Simulated assay, not measured.
Amino acid sequence: MNSFVIREYKSGDEKYITMLFKEVFGKDMTVEQWKWKYYIPGNGKIYSKIAEDSNGNLIGHAGAVPLKGLFKGKPYQFFQIADVMVHPKARGFFGTKNIFSMIIKKLFEDIAKAFTEVFCYGFPGHRPFILGKRIDVYDEIEKAVDYTKTPKYTFFNKCKIKNLEWNDIEINNLWNSISNSLGLSVIRDTAYLNWRYALNPFNNYQLYGAFHSGILKCWFVTKEQEDELFIIDFMSDLKLFRQALKAFEKIFAHKKKIHIWVSKPFKESLKNYNIEQTQIITTNMIWKLPLKTDIVKKNLFYTMGDVDIF
């Protein structure tokens, strides 16, 4: 193949990035959608890498969405790695001629130089995960599991479900009260919820709160798909999580199925849910980066909302 260079994003690339997205994934992404995803959380700083051939054609992209996170109660820089793609005609080859290897390694090397305390993660399917594993950039945290259940109507519950506004101050109060117990997590405050869900140009979401004695103890971000309901994201007081879920099931008892992803220690509350394996692998990015996978496995809190496709 012709020679190529790996470079920083520059204004105007988004037109060709979205064209490459269509070529690789067979789906449309508008320039506005790409800008929402990469511009807003980083306040204009784009960390993504571009591969360009000798004729100036954009043939590769590795995206890094900057997010604010916490690790053991302290601020920690997060990046969700997304939209890693190479034009079909430019794939293959070995060593320094392999675009996938060169672009993803360059991305992580530059992130590691910019941040001493940083966590990069992503959710590739099986085939792209294997490609990343072979070149020592991806490491498996776990295979993502979909917990499902037919919701039931129950009569007595400690929690009351109400609609919430995306900027409700109680969301921040809940986050501040329980965030230190989560280990490793994106900061799920009103700023994050507004960007990720309220302003999302791909999907429409609803926000519900579970209240106990008038105090917000849990919230759920949901998306409906025909007669099924997906709990895309949540934050909860662990002690009341099961009760909050039951109260939530009550108001959606007419749905055929509820879907939710949870991580430790919330899995203990879902013993009466069915477990369905997904094709998604929760992945720690390890090339030149500081957090070892065994530490991530013990600490990471994530939901469907951490995955950009939901």
Rank of each mutant, 00 (worst) to 15 (best):
F310C: 11
K298T: 02
V296Y: 04
A247F: 01
I81A: 10
C218R: 02
H254S: 13
Y9Q: 10
I187T: 13
N2L: 09
E8S: 15
K256F: 04
N167V: 04
K271I: 14
N98T: 09
I171D: 03
G69S: 02
T150H: 08
L182F: 11
P124Q: 06
G56W: 09
E224M: 11
N194G: 01
A114E: 15
D146G: 06
I135R: 09
F78A: 05
F123A: 05
N2W: 00
K160D: 14
G183D: 08
E8W: 05
D146L: 09
D237H: 05
S179R: 13
K292P: 06
F248T: 04
T96N: 14
V84A: 08
I99F: 02
C120W: 11
I169F: 13
R7L: 08
V221C: 06
T293F: 00
M85W: 05
L199H: 03
Q279F: 02
A210D: 05
Y76D: 01
A191H: 11
T278I: 04
D189F: 10
A82G: 14
T222D: 01
E117N: 15
S179W: 01
K97H: 13
I275V: 14
M235Q: 11
K74A: 08
D136G: 03
L216P: 00
L174S: 07
D146W: 06
K22M: 07
E109D: 10
M235R: 03
K158W: 07
F241S: 07
A112I: 00
D83P: 06
A247P: 00
V118M: 07
I130H: 03
T283K: 10
N176I: 02
E52D: 03
K271G: 08
M29N: 06
K257R: 14
E109A: 12
T96M: 14
E142M: 14
T30I: 10
N172W: 05
V86S: 03
I171E: 09
F79K: 06
Y16W: 13
I103G: 03
G63P: 01
F25G: 11
A210Y: 09
I46P: 04
K45H: 07
S269C: 11
K74W: 01
W195M: 03
Y76M: 12
F252Y: 15
D227L: 05
W261Q: 09
W287S: 13
G214T: 10
F119G: 03
I275Q: 13
W219P: 01
A191W: 09
L199D: 09
H87P: 06
W287F: 15
R127W: 08
S11E: 15
L199F: 05
Q225T: 00
D308F: 04
G209N: 11
W34D: 06
K22Q: 14
G122N: 10
K152S: 12
L131P: 00
Y153F: 15
S11M: 12
G209V: 12
T116E: 15
N173Y: 12
P75E: 10
Y138L: 10
F108H: 15
G305A: 05
I59K: 02
R127H: 07
I280A: 07
Q80R: 10
D53T: 04
F71K: 13
D139K: 15
N194F: 00
L58M: 07
W166D: 06
H61S: 03
D233W: 09
S101R: 10
D189Q: 08
L182W: 01
Y197E: 02
K22D: 11
V5T: 14
V137R: 00
